[in-house]
């Protein structure tokens, strides 16, 4: 332990005391000189190039993020507006559809009513016609029956050997048919 290493001896060209090389003041000037050089180099590089650049990058990023957020907000606003417009259009369309439906319903109703009225009139006409026809037929049937009765009576009277009196027979038939 008493001697220093050969390297140390060679370094200083003299025997240094064993112990802390930190307290070997012959090297301080050298260390301080190179320290100042290093610090100045680092300071100049940082303050001239690196720090402004990184600061600008960070600011750019902040701006980009803010811009993106604003754009997103814009898009959201527009989406909300579009939704509102869509809702309004939907409501309008619904109202229009309701109106058209009501109109159509009313028109159809009117048509149906008119058709029913026409049909009623026709039915009434046909009924009247039918009744008239029935009445005519009934009348002609009564006439025919009277004719047949008269003829039958004449024939019966002739067959029984009597002399048929046309007026009497007609009156008798009329009296019978009233009954």
């Amino acid at each position: 332990m008493a001697t220093t290493s050969p390297a140390a001896d060679a370094a200083h060209g003299a025997v240094t005391a064993p112990g802390m090389p930190q307290l070997d003041f012959t090297t301080w000037g050298n260390q301080i000189f190179w320290l100042m050089v290093t610090l100045v180099v680092i300071y100049v590089v940082l303050s001239r190039i690196a720090l402004p650049r990184i600061g600008a990058v960070l600011e750019d990023r902040q701006n980009t993020i803010l811009k993106d957020l604003n754009t997103a907000d814009d898009f959201k606003q527009r989406a909300l507006e579009a939704e509102k417009a869509y809702d309004a259009a939907l409501a309008a369309a619904r109202a229009e559809a309701g109106r058209i439906a009501a109109q159509t319903r009313a028109a159809i109703q009117a048509e149906v009513d008119a058709a029913i009225a026409r049909a009623d009139v026709e039915i009434a006409e046909r009924t009247a016609e039918g009744e008239a026809a029935i009445a005519a037929i009934r009348r002609s049937a009564t006439d025919s029956i009277a004719q047949v009765a008269t003829d039958t009576t004449e024939a019966l009277v002739a067959a029984l050997g009597g002399k048929a009196d046309a007026t009497e027979i007609a009156a008798a038939v009329a009296a019978q048919m009233k009954g």
Binding site: S5, A7, A8, A11, G19, M20, P21, Q22, D24, N30
Partner: peptide, 10 residues
Amino acid sequence: FHPMDQFIVK
């Protein structure tokens, strides 16, 4: 032990 030799300025 030469723990301090590493600090020698050469």
